[in-house]
Computed example of a mutant assay.
Amino acid sequence: MHAARHLTSLYLVRDGHVLLLYRRGSRAIADSWVGIGGRLEPGELTDPTAAALRELQEELGVTPDQLTDLALRYVAVRDTGAEIRTTYYFTAGLDATATVPAECAEGDLAWFGLEEDPRLEMPVTARIAFTHWLSVGRHDRTLRFITVGADGRETGPA
Rank of each mutant, 00 (worst) to 15 (best):
L7K: 07
V18D: 03
Y74G: 08
A51G: 08
L94R: 02
D15V: 02
P64V: 03
R14C: 03
E55S: 08
E116L: 15
R85F: 07
P123S: 07
L70V: 13
T131P: 08
S26Y: 06
R138C: 00
S135H: 13
R141E: 12
A150R: 10
A126S: 13
T125Y: 11
T142M: 11
L10M: 12
I84C: 10
A150L: 03
G113R: 13
P101K: 04
T147S: 14
R78N: 11
A129T: 03
A30F: 04
G156C: 11
R127K: 13
F90R: 02
R138K: 04
L134H: 09
L10Q: 15
G16R: 01
P123K: 04
I84Q: 13
Y11L: 11
G43W: 14
A110G: 12
R85I: 09
A96R: 14
A30N: 08
L114A: 11
R73L: 08
L109R: 02
V77D: 09
G61W: 03
V62G: 01
G113I: 15
D117Q: 15
L19F: 03
T86F: 05
H6Y: 15
D117H: 15
R54E: 05
H2W: 09
T147I: 01
D47G: 06
H6E: 14
P48N: 06
T8I: 04
R23A: 15
D31K: 00
W133N: 09
T155D: 12
V148A: 06
L134S: 09
T68I: 03
A105D: 09
A96G: 14
F130D: 04
R5F: 08
I146A: 02
G81F: 06
G149F: 05
D151A: 09
P118F: 07
Y22C: 06
G61Q: 01
L94I: 05
V13I: 13
V13Y: 10
A3I: 09
D69N: 14
M122G: 08
L70F: 11
T125A: 13
L20F: 03
R85L: 10
D65T: 09
M122N: 08
G107D: 02
V124M: 14
A71H: 12
A110S: 13
V148P: 00
L72D: 09
A3L: 12
G38T: 01
C104P: 00
E121T: 08
L20V: 01
P101G: 05
R5E: 14
L12R: 04
E106F: 10
E115R: 14
D69C: 06
I36C: 01
E154K: 15
D79P: 03
